[in-house]
């Protein structure tokens, strides 16, 4: 059984069809990319998984759970972590605090114990810091550890978002345009990190990306979308050479 399954998912906003009868599977351990022109429904697919939108029809399964039976906040608890297209960090907190919120789903204490900061809370906090510190190490965020997000450059914020998603200890990591707005060097870093996350941590990755260079270098399989429907699916080369995809991108000129 696949880790993530989209089964004939349709989403309508009024009369507009944002996602049209879309089906795909993401297998455990692979890097899977959604590509397509703007407005093709890539981010919408992410938001469906995050349960921000309610699909009009279809089913979404994750790791044997029916996602549609869960609240948005429970999706993270099942092991789905994500980043956002335009950074959605907690701006008035430090990098460390942002990452610690990532640990929220592993919380075992309640607020009463926390008011008194009982030994179990203390133990949990130490453990959280240990986990988070490893991610800070992994992504080279040490210089920014205690800095406020509001003062950080864009590229660093992008990495902090990745770090925060990793801090949740996910089974699947959804990256919404991880390389958009990054410099060439930063994109290269991002590429190695995605590779390392998959190899060292064994985390499945689902990403939306426009940079085809990045996509073909890290992805196992690619799904091309247009107007909310599937256009082509396969290895990066297969999809890139697919006539329907070329037409969707170049508007029939080629």
């Amino acid at each position: 059984m696949s880790l993530l399954e989209f089964e004939n998912v349709t989403l309508k906003f009024g009369g507009v069809i944002a996602v049209n009868d879309l089906s795909f599977n993401v297998e455990k351990g692979e890097v899977f990319a959604l590509v397509g022109p703007n407005g093709a429904g890539k981010s919408t697919a992410f938001n469906l998984i995050s349960r921000f939108y309610e699909p009009s029809a279809g089913r979404i399964h994750f790791d044997g759970h029916d996602l549609l039976a869960h609240k948005p906040s429970e999706v993270a608890t099942l092991g789905v972590a994500r980043t956002f297209q335009n950074n959605e960090l907690f701006d008035h907190s430090t990098v460390l605090q942002n990452l610690l919120i990532g640990r929220h789903r592993h919380r075992k204490t309640n607020f009463l114990a926390e008011i008194f900061f009982s030994p179990s809370v203390r133990k949990q906090e130490l453990q959280n810091r240990h986990m988070v510190e490893e991610i800070i190490d992994f992504l080279d965020l040490q210089p920014y550890r205690d800095k406020m997000i509001a003062g950080l450059p864009y590229g660093v914020r992008k990495v902090v978002e990745l770090a925060r998603a990793l801090a949740t200890g996910p089974k699947i990591l959804m990256l919404d345009e991880p390389a958009s707005g990054l410099s060439v060097e930063e994109t290269t870093d991002m590429r190695w990190w995605i590779d390392d996350i998959r190899r060292q941590m064994g985390i499945t990755i689902l990403m939306v990306e426009h940079d085809m260079g990045l996509v073909s270098s890290v992805c196992d399989r690619v799904l091309a979308l247009a107007n909310g429907a599937k256009l082509a699916e396969g290895t990066p080369e297969q999809v890139q050479t697919n006539p329907a995809v070329i037409e969707a991108y170049l508007g029939g000129a080629a």
Binding site: S50, F52, P72, S73, E74, V75, A76, T77, A81, R82, F84, E88, L89, F90, I101, G102, H104, R105, R164, T168
Partner: peptide
């Protein structure tokens, strides 16, 4: 939005 995605 982000809080929700972190399981809050």
């Amino acid at each position: 939005v982000s809080a929700q995605a972190m399981g809050v």
